[in-house]
């Protein structure tokens, strides 16, 4: 009846330095119910994406099933399980931008970047996505890189825009 009082720590000890930033966040939210999304949110901010290994670490720290963590991650499109580029390009394909040639921008961008929609460039600089209306219909066609909106884009402007990053 005499045993070590510690639960399994194999994962934790192997990767403690790697996830030390996350540990602080988990410590903060650990005993609050319903804080998983918040933790995932912050974790993605720190590490860029949420790979299986990180999901396991979070599941282990919070003592909840891994399938629950991955269930939440795969439910929300904001969470990504694949590495993301340094910058995220979102080309608007809302009605106005669609009509004013959003599709051509996408075609040209994917030529320049060499990747398709939802993918990340090989050098890890850009993740290429579409957005459904960013509320800039008067400036169509529009696109966003990170938090900056580019208005009335056309295919000839693209290279000079990308050159800024």
């Amino acid at each position: 009846m005499s045993k070590r009082p510690v639960p399994c720590t194999c994962l934790r000890s192997a990767t403690s330095s790697k996830y030390s930033e996350l540990d602080k966040i988990i410590e903060l939210y650990k005993n609050k119910e319903g804080s998983l999304i918040q933790i995932l949110h912050l974790a993605q901010e720190i590490y860029g994406h949420l790979p299986l290994e990180l999901q396991q670490y979070i599941a282990d720290s919070l003592d909840i099933p891994l399938s629950e963590v991955s269930g939440v991650i795969t439910f929300y499109s904001f969470f990504s399980t694949k590495p993301r580029g340094e910058h995220t390009i979102r080309v608007c394909l809302g009605t106005a931008c669609y009509v004013r040639g959003g599709k051509k921008i996408i075609e040209r961008l994917s030529e320049i970047l060499g990747v398709g929609l939802g993918e990340t460039t090989k050098d890890g600089r850009f993740t290429f996505e579409i957005a459904r209306c960013i509320g800039a219909c008067g400036l169509a066609p529009a696109m966003m890189i990170d938090n900056v909106v580019y208005k009335q884009v056309n295919v000839n402007k693209l290279e000079s825009i990308l050159a800024r990053y």
């Binding site: 909840i64 099933p65 891994l66 399938s67 629950e68 991955s70 269930g71 439910f75 929300y76 499109s77």
Partner: peptide
Amino acid sequence: GVGVLNAQNR
């Protein structure tokens, strides 16, 4: 209380 199965995706 095992939690292997859960709904994934949306």
